[in-house]
Structures are given as C-alpha cells and as structure tokens.
Amino acid sequence: MQITLNGEPREVAEGTRMAELVETLSLTGQRFAVEVNAELVPRSRFAEHQLSPNDKVEIIQAVGGG
C-alpha cells in the first residue's frame, strides 16, 4: 500500500506498524516524533499503531532555528 512519508509517496507492506516503519528507516534510538494524519502518535504506541493506505506520516526532529 502507499503512504505519504514526509511529503513523498512511499510503498509499505499492508498492515505495517509504526515500529516497523521506524526500524526500516533506521531511526531506532534517534530523537524524533511522529504524527499520522496530523495526529501525534506517541512512542509508547509505535508497536500497536497500524498504518492505513494513504496515511500522511510526518517524522520530525529538532533543527537550528530562532
């Protein structure tokens, strides 16, 4: 199925869970936060949160700014 990840289309397996996506992206252990369709998905729910087709996933980090 297709999702939108940080604004780019991306193919993931049906029923992919957030924890699996994070692992695929080699983000495990890094500081980031995730929202799906403009709703925050806390880290504590990564293992259970299942992605749906056309989900808009945003993964964010801290950057320099004023």
Partner: peptide
Amino acid sequence: TIAVRRTNLG
C-alpha cells in the same frame, strides 16, 4: 530555542 522540521531520512 530550536525549530521542528521533517527529519533526515538518510
């Protein structure tokens, strides 16, 4: 202060 932006995905 820091800003929040899309993460570096490689």
